[in-house]
Design a protein around this nucleic acid. Structure first.
Length: 492
RNA sequence: GCACCGGUGGCGAAGUGGCUAACGCGCUGGUCUGCAAAACCAGUAUUCGCCGGUUCAAUCCCGGCCCGGUGCUCCA
């Protein structure tokens, strides 16, 4: 099955496949590690994760590079304010970032590239640009890219800069550059700032040159796909193209993948709106990591997603239903006969699932195909008409599903616990909801003890005591389910 | 202001020029259960922002309007 994916550069849906016949070389813009990641950040990383997981499912090996921007103006400012070194400051947030990705079941890219560890390749790239008169040094010792030397500037974001004359709207003198649009490649140090001594002079890299240099170092002058949030299209990605293609005279990335922003409760997420959430905020309020992942990937990446708490609750239920079904199928007692109708439904579900993702990563349709199977499967289990092969086939489809969606394994309590431990260390335990604290205070063993006691009470037909225990547990966010094979409990 | 994207049931959301407008959650009734929960069955938009147009036929195509979002500026 060929994978069709929208390409921002051409504005069309095009086939995605490894141009070298081996690995799909992709570069995704990573975080600037100056604070904890918010759910908008994670939507992008999750959608890229869906892409790379689907590639693997289709037998394509990704070679995925993600950068970590660990030096920039905000980092320098915040580190100074906190009175720590830049590396000390960024280490904390980089660690937090990877913990968050882990909680959201985002696979680690093959290569993680820190800006501060790639200064020599950035310097080399700037020198290469300077040799072609595409870069110039200003009086303060900074280097800029000369946009006038790159006529294709604007081809990604579809902007036409030909009509813009320098000085018309912006006072060029103020910038000490040849043209107001020219962007910094290398920034001269201000007094006391972290700086690198290089052939270009002292200073630190501009943001855009990082990605160009690191992408080229690991993936070559020309590679398959470049990903990022929609806001990066201009100027960041446009600038990457200008730098890289000016230096190499080759197409930088063939395919450009941009993930749209999300809204929170119908409004743009912002601190001033009071609807700004980090992953940790949500975990402390008792939302499950799996439900957050499910919600953030269920709306196709090119659509605006409205993140709401109702939606999050709905996804919690959806994930639960999938997990329950998965367990039911695994524990099914096979009927002597195979169910031809169910076999057909299963095959159809599998086919629709793959086709939906191959069609520009339509996660909403892919998900719908799985729920069609859930319904058919549950009905057949209830009727006792699931054969051995039926069960195996359904498990295979669920396995395919989970290789991309990654929500069936329940590690939610672990991530919530980790968030609580973090909040305690940071003195932010007050932000956790009472129910989360109560629920986490109960260990699995303690819960099991109470469940066993209730089972005894039930056997003795002491329903009052049994219901009392069930209610007490419910208050602490523990739900019980009686079934033929005993009691199943779960954290709400 | 200019450019681009979107407006589908109670909520989220897919989709298509004509077939019952997916799927999830919610809600109502039923089956099952000591009671619940889970699971299943049935029901839950004569209708796809508004107004025109094209067409035998439009939610889907075209034009205008209204609303939301994004980019043009640091931002995933």
């Amino acid at each position: 099955m060929t994978i069709q994916l929208f390409n921002t550069l051409t504005g069309r849906i095009e086939e995605l496949s490894p141009s070298d016949g081996k690995a799909l070389r992709m570069y995704a813009c990573g975080p600037t590690v100056y604070d904890y990641g918010h759910i908008g950040n994670f939507r992008t990383f999750l959608q890229v994760d869906v892409l790379r997981r689907f590639l693997k499912l289709e037998g394509i090996t990704p070679k995925h590079v993600m950068n970590i921007t660990d030096v920039d103006d905000k980092i320098i400012r915040n580190a100074a304010a906190a009175g720590v070194s830049i590396s000390e400051y960024t280490q904390k947030y980089e660690k937090a970032f990877f913990e968050d990705l882990n909680a959201l079941a985002v696979e680690k890219p093959e290569i993680i590239a820190r800006a501060t560890e790639h200064i020599p390749s950035m310097v080399a790239l700037i020198e290469k640009l300077a040799a072609q008169d595409c870069a110039y040094k200003t009086e303060d010792g900074s280097w800029y890219f000369r946009i006038a030397k790159f006529p294709d500037y604007g081809k990604l974001s579809k902007k036409d800069f030909s009509g813009i004359t320098d000085g018309a709207r912006v006072d060029v003198d103020e910038y000490d550059k040849d043209s107001a649009r020219d962007f910094a490649l290398w920034k001269a140090p201000k007094p006391g700032e972290r700086k690198w001594e290089t052939a270009l002079g002292p200073g630190r890299p501009g943001w855009h040159i990082e990605c160009s240099a690191m992408a080229t170092e690991y993936l070559g002058d020309s590679f398959d796909l470049h990903a990022g949030g929609e806001d990066l299209m201009f100027p960041h990605h446009e600038n990457e193209i200008a730098q890289s293609e000016s230096a190499s005279h080759k197409t930088f990335a063939h395919h450009w993948f941009h993930v749209r922003f999300l809204l929170v409760e119908g409004r743009k997420m912002s601190k001033s709106e009071g609807n700004f959430y980090t992953l940790r905020d949500l975990l402390l309020k008792g939302h499950k990591a799996s439900a957050i992942r499910m919600l953030l990937i269920s709306v196709p990446y090119r659509q605006q997603l409205n993140f709401t708490f109702d939606g999050l609750a709905a996804e919690t239920g959806a994930v639960e239903r999938l997990r329950t079904f998965h367990e039911r199928v695994r524990g099914v007692v096979p009927a002597p006969q195979e169910n031809a109708e169910l076999a057909a439904e299963t095959a159809k579900s599998r086919e629709s699932f793959h086709a939906a993702l191959a069609n520009d990563l339509n996660t909403a349709e892919a998900r719908a195909a799985i729920f069609d199977l859930v319904r058919a499967g549950n009905a057949a289990i209830d009727a006792g008409t699931v054969g051995r092969e039926n069960a195996a086939a359904m498990l295979a489809v669920l396995d395919d599903f989970d290789q991309v969606f990654a929500v069936l394994e329940d590690r939610d309590a672990e991530w919530t616990r980790a968030a609580l431990d973090w909040a305690e260390r940071e003195g932010r335990l007050g932000e956790a909801s009472a129910e989360v604290v109560a629920q986490s205070a109960l260990s699995d063993d303690q819960i099991q003890e109470l469940v066993d006691e209730r089972t005894q009470a039930k056997r003795a037909r002491n329903f009052a005591r049994a219901d009392q225990i069930r209610n007490e547990l419910a208050e602490k966010g523990i739900l019980l389910e009686d079934s033929k094979d005993g009691v199943r409990w779960k954290r709400k």
